[in-house]
Design a protein around this nucleic acid. Structure first.
Lengths: 145, 145
DNA sequence: ATAATAAAAGACAAAAATATCTTTTATTAT
DNA sequence: ATAATAAAAGATATTTTTGTCTTTTATTAT
């Protein structure tokens, strides 16, 4: 098991890619993105449609169209992407999948995972979409392979 | 997305349940376990067959048979269950699903998740199967709902 | 207005995860 | 030996996730 669903992995990588291009002021087409992050084009299209509907990214149809991210969204945390795609189970769900698990009715791993979960949440909350851009800019980071 | 697959959630809960019974010296049948942890009986049977083949738990056929855990296995870490069922991706895999992600070729979240991953690994490595038994014994912990 | 471009939308397909059903094998008690 | 018990094994079914194909809508440039 991975931390994120495949859909979410694509989503984050795509948003990073779009953000990278948006920082340079250009819109970017789905083909370009799919190639840039090595994902299935038409599946990614669905994902981006969803992110677009939810207001995380923007898009424009027609010639010179494509996906882009405005200044405000660039400063949103990565946790927003995760929540939209994978929900908040990673942040709040019981590690053993118990619906009633809580402080009062804890599962055997409740205390231990409380710490882990809050750290993941904090990390994703404190990392903004453009937070990594400088490094990505310098070609020091990878979004493919 | 949850941290563990559903299969792994069932596996951990079942092993805890068996351990709890084994501490009292009794074998426990699949029906009992399935009821005890609220999981689909026949699916759980498959999972336990697997854990048994891998040597994490033991089983005996026939009357008075059932599943149990020996002393040695009781002291194994929970990470062993996770590795058997979900593999080691949670401990070593890239958060963004990139195969080539590494110290030399890091994904944008590499550094941040390195810390998280090692904490999860450490936690599961340092928690033994019977580590929680006392609390479970006192009915302070839940494996259902 | 028309043609070209590019995303949106809807339907469909394949693969993986989860769940169930049936038959077989091993063990125990009678 | 036989019947009863309980897990193992194999086959099948369902659901969810991932991926693809086709048609439609919006925008731009000519």
């Amino acid at each position: 098991m991975a931390i994120f669903s495949k859909t979410c992995e694509y989503a984050i990588r795509a948003v990073f890619y779009i953000a990278h291009k948006s920082a340079a002021g250009t819109k970017v087409g789905i083909k370009d993105i799919a190639t840039g992050i090595d994902s299935p084009e038409l599946y990614l299209a669905k994902i981006l449609q969803d992110l677009s509907r939810k207001g995380l990214i923007s898009s424009a149809k027609g010639p010179n169209g494509g996906f882009y991210i405005n200044e405000a969204s660039l400063n949103r945390p990565i946790s927003d992407i995760v929540e939209v795609v994978d929900g908040n189970n990673l942040f709040y769900g019981c590690a053993l999948g118990l619906k009633q698990c809580s402080e009062i009715n804890p599962c055997p791993l409740h205390e231990q995972f409380k710490a882990i979960r809050s750290q993941i949440h904090e990390l994703l909350d404190n990392t903004t979409i453009n937070g990594f851009n400088e490094e990505l800019m310098n070609g020091l980071l990878s979004l493919r392979k």
